[in-house]
Nucleic acid binder design. Structure first.
Lengths: 124, 124, 124, 124
DNA sequence: GTGGTCTAGACCACG
DNA sequence: GTGGTCTAGACCACT
């Protein structure tokens, strides 16, 4: 489900971008699937259509979706490539975060515990 | 050494805050050590004194430093408590980042590899 | 063969216009040859008949085809004149594109290489 | 000089993008040079600031400029890389245009004449 | 004063 | 009805 948090400091259009990109990358939105129209999503989320439009435009630039003027927005058939890029991006961010934690005194064991916890959650 | 990157999108005052807090938490700045004056640091970094002031004010609020009006700014003797908070903060951020990576398909082994790489660097 | 690419950003009616004009200019459609009816072509391409109609109307305006109400659409006997205009049009566009390339540093030799490549392909 | 043509069918923000990119690529705008502010350029060109903003945002995405919030927009120091990409882009467009011209009957000699004319202009 | 975000409302081309 | 562009006007954080 596509949602936004108006209290979040992150701009609404960025929330939308990350939200939809994640849904697409995780396969919850299938290639060539029809997204809600700009106006419809704007109405649902009580947000200005321009903000939706900005998010859709950026998603198109990232090859997550494609737009057919007069017809709508659709999940890109190349979503697999986007998923691979996204995974690399998150792994780089993770490496940076590990360094930050290490620099303030985090022990390797503490991080390993976090890691185990995250992947044990999966087994439910 | 205190530095700022004028090209970075992160606000200068935030760079200063993170920079000084990290130096203090890592022990490169000792409790009660005298920090450069607002004017002096502003001159060194070629930055508006207001920006330095803003950073020092926020650092005082975070108990990283304390100000003695007319005498200057000093590293807090309670820096150890700050260090513990900071470590918790970074670990929470790390847990979140692990979840993000997992959600886009990162395998536990891949993350473990990153972790080993980060802590092998440590054996200096 | 008349085709359209639903994914292309170019409007479908423009694709049709360019497509049919090119076929006619290159001689693949002969003067007075009978074109598919609006309904028939709409059915073949799975496209709204209004879109076909719009393309045919514009082609008639350009003297590429002529319409005999109740009988259908036919390639114009004056297709030769259209071909000459079209050639002039493309040469003007080419001159403009050469200028653009030159302005960003393209060397004359580089362009000559492109030219040779394009016309060597022809000798097949 | 930065200009726009309101009668052109090309969107204003695209005109701005192409205009400024070309000025930068051709070296008329130097690395780290300060561009007109959003509001100032909007006033000069009698255009809404949002439209300028949209153009600047896209130029930043293309690494043509970089923005420092609160300070202004500046030509990227990596403009050389952009220039090389741009040259490749124009050469590809030129190759496509040559094919189009050939397909409507343009002779190699005719194109060679255009080419000579474009590069003889340079010698004045 | 600067860039960045957002709203409200309008117009256009396309299907 | 759809995406795309543009205007007008507002608010925010940063310098």
């Amino acid at each position: 489900m596509i949602t936004v948090d108006m209290r979040d400091r992150k701009p609404i259009y960025e929330q939308l971008i990350d939200n939809i990109r994640t849904l697409a990358v995780q396969g919850h939105l299938k290639p060539d699937e029809h997204l809600p129209s700009v106006r419809q999503l704007a109405a649902e989320l009580a947000i200005n259509p321009n903000t939706i439009q900005k998010a859709y435009a950026e998603l198109e630039r990232q090859n997550v979706i494609y737009a057919l003027p007069g017809r709508g927005n659709f999940i890109s058939p190349d979503i697999g490539a986007v998923a691979r890029q996204e995974k690399e991006r998150q792994l780089r961010a993770l490496a940076a975060q590990i360094t930050l934690a290490k620099n303030v005194g985090a022990q390797k064991d503490e991080i390993r515990t976090l890691l185990d916890a995250a992947y044990d959650d999966t087994t439910r």
